[in-house]
Design a protein around this nucleic acid. Structure first.
Lengths: 228, 228
DNA sequence: CGGGGCATGATTGTTCACAATAAAGTTGAC
DNA sequence: GTCAACTTTATTGTGAACAATCATGCCCCG
């Protein structure tokens, strides 16, 4: 597919390299759900051995991003609407926990970073740059989990966010969703800045509730379009 | 180590077989944290190829049960007290979500199963069978997630519970913990039986709060014992 | 014209051998 | 006796070949 490949990775970093590259390709949308992942192709793409590709795929399967059928290879997992809702619900529960820790542990510079992302988000919202907003949205949540310092929740959230990649930017498409999302983000930052874990969790709960509603709305619209 | 091995698995089930067996050995305490997992030994133990062992280890690493260092192989991951607390917190958040769904979706027979586990737990508590109680405790939570019908949360909880295996039965050792745990379980079943998600979540929150406190207590005692 | 069986190709699961690396053990000098 | 450099050994990472399985296309028969 893409004959351009990075330099041949050294011994020992083959599997990790393949894993990270596959993950990035997924996040950047270069791999669409349902797409087959043929091992020999990945070998050519990443310049690693088949064993490395194989274990990387096993890891991605464990993570829930890829599904493998016996003797039939791996493909990018396709989420049903129910699964997307489930993942978002799990994310919600964990993001609430994370933001609580973030409020407890945020340093002044962390709040500065959040405010900067907020500023960029507002700019994107003003100019109608939905893709840019979606990217800032991702960065916002990622930054919050980083600030939380909660390694376990961070790991779980990272995995869940990767799985949601296909729906991520579709949820902000709902009319008026961007403005509400931005407001909700502001509320979260305010709570974190004042080191109030309860308020932070409450604000996050409102936010993820809004995202869930948006997702359900998008899903309904998609379903309606599919049955004319 | 254990030369007794199950029948040679057929083609295609090597990796899965190895993964499940390793996982079971971990849960049954036959593998202790810090223990090295030499690939050739596992090959002999499970009668599968080294490639299968390799990918199984990769999956277990992704799951957080095993850690691997470059060129130095895999070993059962050893949890610090902080990590144990983190995992328990993540579990708490997800168990609350799961029990909410369980309350919404429980059928009459599901409640019967829970009541039966409760009965057995009470018997164990009465006779002072801590190990038996710990096992019923595990079954109780597992059953709740099954009833929830929430596949995503079930998967995450399963993974987190596996990681906690070393601390699981130590938390119930705290004096008086068994009785409180049993009462809390009863409250959860009552809420689920009356299909009240809010009450179920609240009861679960109390329960996991108690477990967390017990863990912190045990950890403190262990730390005190380590520094005489 | 349609469908079942059969060859064919593509792709995966597995095995083996080999190179690379880190840990342990050994030797030797000071 | 101790420490450093070297050797040995155990174990992992990797590559290539082989076998098993699935998908595809074809042919022959009805």
């Amino acid at each position: 597919m893409s004959p351009i490949r990075a330099r041949r990775p050294k011994r020992g970093e083959g599997e990790g390299h393949c894993y990270r590259e596959l993950r990035r390709a997924l996040l950047e949308g270069r791999l669409v759900p349902g797409q087959r992942l043929v091992e020999t192709e990945l070998v050519r793409m990443f310049g690693v051995g088949r064993a490395a590709v194989r274990t990387a795929l096993a890891r991605l399967e464990q993570e829930g991003v890829v599904e493998r059928a016996l003797n039939r290879g791996a493909r990018v997992r396709l989420l049903t609407e129910e699964e997307a809702v489930e993942i978002l619900e799990a994310r919600a529960a964990l993001e609430c926990l994370a933001v609580r820790y973030a409020a407890l542990r945020a340093r002044a510079e962390d709040v500065q970073v959040l405010r900067e992302i907020l500023r960029e988000s507002a700019e994107c919202a003003r100019t109608g740059d939905l893709l840019g907003y979606s990217e800032r949205n991702g960065r916002f949540h990622q930054e919050l989990t980083r600030i939380s310092g909660h390694a376990t929740v961070a790991r779980l959230l990272d995995s869940l966010r990767t799985q949601m990649v296909r729906y991520q930017y579709r949820t902000v498409m709902a009319p008026g969703r961007v403005e509400r999302s931005l407001q909700e983000h502001r509320a979260i930052v305010t709570a974190v800045a004042s080191r109030d874990p309860d308020a932070a969790e409450a604000a996050m709960r409102v936010h993820v509730g809004g995202v869930l509603e948006a997702l359900r709305h998008v899903a309904r619209r998609t379903a309606a379009a599919a049955v004319p």
